[in-house]
């Protein structure tokens, strides 16, 4: 996988997706169709968000699936005024941190025994390899040295491309807190990258 070392910029999906409001309009007459559009629009963003927190493709896949299963059962999902995107990222973020916390509690040992995804194993391994390599260098490596709080907000803003307002909704904090936390996180990041540079 020679191409694995080249990096892509954030807007990965060239695919044009309908707006969340348009999806809600569709869902009003056909909920399954609306749900389908929602999954196609957000599945990769949710998966990658989870991947960057869990650092484990299979777990990220599992979390992303779980987010949408919950979404399917969420009766307000397509309601007017329901913050669908923020809801998806919030559920995803919380799930991921639960997983990371449980993993730390078990002393860092990944619980693989309960899983038996056969077909996708090769794909998961390929992605884990790229991920592991990336974590040893540059921005990803620096991000690892930040607190989870700082890492999450940077991820939501500059990786998931969420607006300040959306981040406030995801993390359930005030807009002013988003601004200050984001600022402090970026200042911290410059410091960490500075430390990382060979003297």
């Amino acid at each position: 996988m020679g191409r694995a070392t080249t990096l892509k910029l954030v807007p990965q999906t060239q695919e044009k997706h309908p707006s969340d409001d348009d999806i809600k309009v569709v869902a009003r007459t056909n909920r399954d169709r609306g749900f389908d559009l929602l999954v196609r629009k957000y599945r990769d963003r949710i998966y990658y968000h989870a991947l960057y927190i869990t650092k484990d493709s299979e777990e990220a896949f599992d979390v992303a699936q779980d987010v949408f299963v919950r979404g399917y059962h969420e009766s307000r999902l397509f309601d007017d005024g329901f913050l669908t995107k923020a809801w998806l990222f919030r559920v995803c973020t919380n799930r991921c941190y639960n997983i990371v916390r449980d993993r730390n509690r078990r002393g860092g040992i990944l619980d693989r025994l309960g899983k038996s995804t056969v077909v996708l194993q090769e794909q998961h391994r390929a992605i884990d390899d790229v991920m592991a390599r990336e974590l040893t260098e540059g921005m990803a490596r620096a991000m690892e040295k930040l607190s989870p709080e700082h890492r999450t907000i940077l991820l939501l803003r500059y990786f998931d491309d969420l607006s300040y307002k959306e981040i406030a909704d995801v993390l359930d904090i005030k807009l002013g807190t988003v601004m200050s936390r984001l600022s402090r996180a970026k200042v911290r990041l410059t410091a960490v990258i500075g430390e990382d540079l060979p003297a």
Binding site: R3, A4, D44, Y47, F61, L120, A126, I127, V130, M139
Partner: peptide, 19 residues
């Protein structure tokens, strides 16, 4: 800039098809 890990497009499409 923040960059996303570059996954082989083929691997990625297989992953999301299965998704």
């Amino acid at each position: 800039d923040f960059e996303r890990v570059s996954v082989d497009p083929e691997v990625e499409s297989q992953l999301f098809e299965a998704f």
